[in-house]
Design a protein around this nucleic acid. Structure first.
Length: 281
DNA sequence: ATGTCGAAATCGTTTCGA
């Protein structure tokens, strides 16, 4: 099963590129962030035409997440509500459309667009930390359901020095400050593992390059788009790739897609009866 | 050098957020 995450920075601006990439890579599930479109205007039929089911949770101008799937999506959930400590938290944090989840092939996928945070100690930064704390509670409640878990998306956090092109200069700033990193580590707990690092220990692998300052031409990137898996999925992971060349497109998103290949469901039982199709006549 | 995008309103230029 091939699962992908991509912050597209407006699905309407990026539609041709997303369609081309889907036809090329054929992901089973594509999780989008920053769709920047209210639900009535999501280009749903553009994906249905190529054999995908679509579900989305968006708003005008900002944020917005979507799931594009070749397999049935069930038990689709929107936002962090239902798992929060109070109704007022749910209402306040639900205004920004940043989370949706679904069951696909028996695994729970949680698609996230973590707040950017603007600048350390700003109002938006405090919101980001608070939001991550709510996400932690949400995932703790989720854990009781005992489903194999994949959480992925744009985390707007580089967890370690090797995830930054210039750790000396950038560490301590937004997306690389100790409080953000600690908050994310608490979200992950003991259960969730960064599948990219299972295959690639080295620095120099980025998923986001700022549009400004010639960051792409100078390869000054950050690794802030992540895929985290629970143990049973991690054991069956075959690869995790950053599709860097997509960032070199004409009119690109500032993020590249990231994919994980998981052997899932884990193994076909050889003793199981053969497909009933064979008995048709 | 906060240097570029995308969206929307204050609309053919500026603002906000990233």
């Amino acid at each position: 099963m091939l699962i992908a995450t991509w912050n597209v920075n407006s699905i309407r601006s990026r539609l041709p590129q997303v369609q081309t990439w889907i036809e090329e890579v054929k992901p089973d599930l594509l999780c989008l962030q920053e769709t920047k479109v209210d639900d009535p205007f999501f280009p749903k039929s553009e994906f249905e035409r190529i054999g995908y089911q679509v579900s989305f949770h968006g708003q005008k101008s900002y944020n917005g997440v979507a799931l594009i799937s070749r397999h049935p999506l069930t038990d689709i959930r929107f936002g962090l509500s239902g798992e929060l400590s109070s109704d007022s938290d749910a209402e306040r944090l639900g205004e920004q459309k940043r989370v949706m989840s679904a069951l696909v092939n028996g695994l729970r996928v949680v698609n996230l667009y973590v707040p950017n945070g603007s600048a350390v100690d700003s109002e938006k930064y405090l919101y980001k930390l608070e939001w991550l704390n709510c996400l932690k509670h949400y995932l703790e409640a989720q854990a009781e359901r005992d489903e194999p878990l994949c959480i992925l998306g744009d985390f707007n956090i580089a967890l370690e020095a090797r995830d930054l092109h210039n750790p000396k200069r950038l560490t301590g700033g937004i997306m690389a400050s100790p409080p953000e990193r600690e908050a994310l580590k608490k979200v992950l707990g003991e259960r969730l593992h960064d599948v990219f690092r299972l295959f690639e220990p080295d620095s120099g692998h980025w998923s986001w390059w700022d549009y400004r300052s010639g960051a792409w031409d100078r390869d000054r990137g950050w690794r802030i788009d992540h895929i985290y898996l629970s143990e049973e999925l991690l054991q069956n992971a075959k690869s995790c790739l950053i599709h860097k060349k997509i960032r070199g497109n004409v009119k690109p998103s500032d993020h590249a897609p990231v994919t994980v290949e998981i052997c899932w469901p884990p193994e076909e039982d050889e003793n199981e009866p053969i497909n009933s199709e064979s008995f048709r006549f």
